[in-house]
Structures are given as structure tokens and as C-alpha cells.
């Protein structure tokens, strides 16, 4: 069990850092604008992240498995560790970074090290969603902003009543965003461990309560929740004011837009519904919640006037698409080499 926990620790660390940073994308604007208390945000966020991970985390994890099925626990540990180290190092260097992009780079790094082929069609699909993610969030935000502006103007709702509705909306949208974050990003945290999950099914009287993968995702979800409680407060309090000065209503729009984007790239139900209607479905891929938030904020900026757009932010996102996976892939390759040749661990079968 200790060995299992040791090998899972890199994923748990990644989960903790996701909780500390990415949870701020969901509730940061609400806490930053002082519309929702941190304690409430942390509780709702933790509960719904875990729910999203356990209930709807399979889709995006499955796509990661198709990119590269890391078939040894040592390899999975190293891939997750490489992603975590890359995220940490790039954050320290103040470079744009996303956990989703780091883990993809690490998996490709493992593929190269293990001599396994990388499915380029899956990889291109994943990279395509990285570009699509902020654009889609921006489009959602533009639409929602236009509708909300008209609605607020026409409804003649009192300033205080608008405040009350916005608070409620932020809490509900935050819960939805947290659920989507759990569903979409659990693949980053625990995706590489899926083929080598060390857990048995959790059964009660022969009835499977949680499958082995769900149990793995539950552990990952708990690590994210731990990150939310221990480290996300400061990030939440600054995220609202760092990027753009948001009003509570625009904060709500940002949360809904980014939550929607995370949801459509994670929901198997939506995928099936679109397929049944004969429509092309969105690929189930872990995407960056930070970039979804930036996309949504930029979308609002575009509606408010083109001069509001900070092009430097756009350049940093594009830079992150290239630098993060390449750095994580390189780190993963080097660490796998050491793991195999110095620590004599099996990293690939």
C-alpha cells in the first residue's frame, strides 16, 4: 500500500497544485470581488470537483489513454511527476503554464522513451481543443454579456436585488464550474494511472459502489480539494483583480463561460446527445481552465471595445501551447531515464 501511495504521490501532488491554482479560476472572480466568502467557495468547490471527477471524469481520461497508455506504475509516477515539476518550474519562472498541456507533453515524452507510437490524430485533436478552448469561452462570454446587459437594462431590477441574484448565480455557476473542472481535469491528475490503477472495485454486498477507476478519481478529487483548502485562498483573492477589473455580473459571465467550455470538453452525455442528433461532437479532452477564463475575459473586453484587449496575454497563451508540452516532455524523458537506469524501476512494459 505504501508503494502504491508513493507512486500515486506525484499525481496527488499534481492534484493539489491543480486545486490550489485552477480552483481559483472557478471561484477566483467571485471571491476576488468579495461576492462569495472563501469558506463557502472552498466547500462548494471541493464537493463539486470530487463529484465531477468521480461521476464524469472518464471521457477526458479515455482520450489521454488513447494518446499513450502508460502501462507501468513507475512510468505513470514519472509522467505525473514530470508534469508537476514542469508546472512548478514554469510558475516559478513566471511563464504561462497549464496542467493539461504539461501532462500531454509528459505522456508524449513517455511514448518517445518507451518507443511507443504517438497517435497523431489524437494529438492534433487535443492541440486543436487548446486553441478552441479560449476562443469558445470568449464566444460564450460575448453572447452572455450581450444578453445580460440587455436583460439588466430591460428588467429594471434594483441594484441590491441584482446583487443578490448575482451572488446566488456565482455560487451555482461556481458549483457547475467546479463540477466541470473535476470532470475535465481529473484526467490530468489521475489519467496516467488509469491503465495501472492500484485500487480494487469498492463493493458492498457484491454491488459495485465505486469502480477501480472511480476510486482512483475520488483520491485525485480529494487531492484537488486539499489544494483548494490549503493554498487557493491567495490565488482566488488576486485572480479577480489581476487580469481585468471585473464587476460581479461580468465575473458571473466569466465563471459560466469557462464552466461551459470545461463541461463540453468533458461530458460524455453531451457527446452522445450530439452524435444522436447527427451533429459533430466536441472531443473529450482535458483543457486549461486558466485559458478558458482568459478567453472569457477577452470576449467581454471585445464587446466592451477592442481597446480593452491586452494582446500580451494572447501572446502568452500561444507561447504556453508550445513551451509547456515541450518542457514537460523533455523533463519526463530525462526523469524516465534516471528512473529506469539509476533507480532500476520498470517505467514501461
Amino acid at each position: 500500500m505504501i508503494t502504491v501511495l508513493f507512486f500515486l504521490s506525484s499525481g496527488l501532488f499534481l492534484g493539489w497544485s491543480l486545486g490550489a491554482n485552477d480552483a481559483a479560476n472557478v471561484f477566483g472572480t467571485a471571491v476576488g470581488t468579495k461576492m462569495v466568502r472563501f469558506r463557502t467557495a472552498a466547500l462548494v468547490c471541493s464537493v463539486f470537483v470530487i463529484l465531477g471527477a468521480v461521476v464524469a471524469g472518464h471521457g477526458a481520461a479515455h482520450t489521454l489513454g488513447r494518446l499513450g497508455s502508460v502501462n507501468a506504475l513507475g512510468g505513470a509516477f514519472t509522467a505525473a511527476f514530470a508534469a508537476a515539476v514542469s508546472v512548478l518550474a514554469m510558475t516559478r519562472l513566471k511563464l504561462p503554464v497549464s496542467t493539461s498541456q504539461a501532462i500531454i507533453g509528459a505522456i508524449v515524452g513517455w511514448n518517445i522513451f518507451a518507443g511507443k507510437p504517438t497517435d497523431l490524430s489524437v494529438l492534433s485533436k487535443i492541440v486543436g481543443t487548446w486553441v478552441l478552448c479560449p476562443i469558445l469561452a470568449g464566444v460564450f462570454a460575448m453572447g452572455l454579456f450581450t444578453v445580460s446587459e440587455r436583460l439588466v437594462r430591460k428588467s429594471r431590477v434594483h441594484l441590491f436585488m441584482l446583487d443578490a441574484w448575482t451572488r446566488l448565480g456565482l455560487l451555482l455557476a461556481g458549483a457547475f464550474g467546479a463540477f466541470s473542472l473535476g470532470a475535465n481535469n481529473i484526467a490530468n491528475v489521475m489519467g496516467v494511472f488509469v491503465p495501472v490503477t492500484p485500487f480494487p472495485d469498492l463493493t458492498v454486498n457484491g454491488y459495485v459502489l465505486l469502480s477501480d477507476v472511480e476510486l482512483l478519481f475520488l483520491v485525485g478529487g480529494l487531492a484537488i480539494a486539499c489544494g483548494v483548502y490549503t493554498y487557493s485562498r491567495r490565488v482566488m483573492e488576486t485572480v479577480g483583480s489581476d487580469l481585468f477589473r471585473l464587476s460581479p455580473v461580468t465575473a458571473l459571465i466569466v465563471v459560466i463561460s469557462s464552466g461551459l467550455v470545461l463541461f463540453i470538453f468533458a461530458s460524455q452525455g453531451l457527446e452522445q446527445a450530439l452524435h444522436s442528433l447527427g451533429l459533430p461532437a466536441f472531443p473529450l479532452v482535458p483543457v486549461s481552465s486558466s485559458q478558458a477564463v482568459v478567453g472569457a475575459v477577452l470576449g467581454i473586453g471585445m464587446v466592451k471595445g477592442i481597446h480593452n484587449i491586452r494582446y500580451i496575454v494572447l501572446c502568452r497563451i500561444c507561447l504556453g501551447w508550445v513551451v509547456t508540452p515541450v518542457a514537460a516532455g523533455l523533463v519526463c524523458w530525462v526523469l524516465l531515464f534516471f528512473m529506469q537506469n539509476v533507480f532500476m524501476q520498470i517505467v514501461a512494459k
Partner: peptide
């Protein structure tokens, strides 16, 4: 809801 009741009360006071 409590939040909305308190808000309505405050609106009344402003009025």
C-alpha cells in the same frame, strides 16, 4: 430565501 428577504428589507429602507 433569507438572502432575498434581507435584500427586500434593505431596498424598502432605501425607498
Amino acid at each position: 430565501m433569507k438572502l432575498f428577504d434581507k435584500t427586500r428589507q434593505l431596498i424598502e429602507e432605501i425607498e
